[in-house]
Design a protein around this nucleic acid. Structure first.
Lengths: 94, 94
DNA sequence: TAGCCTGTTAGCTATTTAGCTAAATAGCTA
DNA sequence: TAGCTATTTAGCTAAATAGCTAACAGGCTA
């Protein structure tokens, strides 16, 4: 769980996840969307992968990254549960 | 929002929040519950305060810390919203 | 007011992080 | 197989993080 929150601590990594929410992308496609070098992006991919938040798929020449929603959900809902944050935005029927 | 996720990235800080969920505590009470020095704990308080996640109240000699639930909720639910994570653990009626 | 708590600030160290360029690896294609 | 493309690894630097001890400051109380 800690490794997940550490991964979420960087804005670029959250933005990567947000981008992947819209569908899988290659490392290059993702990197092009940000203003840092590819090696730096590769480092971010590594942390996200380490946290289990994304999954890499070798696709011929390139690598297709996809988000692992269940891991993200489990972490967020799990933490919210521990914190007693209602998981419902409206209704509030505890 | 970034400052909040950075604050949540450290396990001790998440544990502090979890402890405060059960009610306000003085700095000393909180510090006693963890195995690091008081100055280190003071640093954690500072980051949590900076993120708006806790609130300090001078109570005579000591400082009473309380959690700021609305800030935490807003950040978590906001991020979940952006990520398309359903805020409902069951039902899933999109 | 002198001393005692409580908590923070100062100042230090070691480690980690995030960024870079250059080089290496892996797969495709001519 | 030579070369091209895509991505990672290596190796570096600067800055941030988390920890410590020692010293300071604010508020009680004898």
């Amino acid at each position: 769980m800690n490794v997940i929150f550490e991964a979420l601590a960087h804005p670029t990594r959250r933005a990567i996840l947000e981008m992947l929410k819209g569908g899988s992308r290659t490392a290059g496609e993702i990197a092009d969307a940000f203003d840092v070098s590819k090696p730096t992006m590769s480092g971010h991919f590594h942390k996200l992968k380490e946290a289990g938040l994304i999954h890499a798929d070798q696709r011929g020449n390139s690598i297709l990254y996809s988000i692992n929603m269940s891991v993200l959900e489990e972490a967020l809902l799990g933490f919210m549960g521990k914190m007693g944050v209602s998981a419902r935005t409206e209704g509030e029927a505890t």
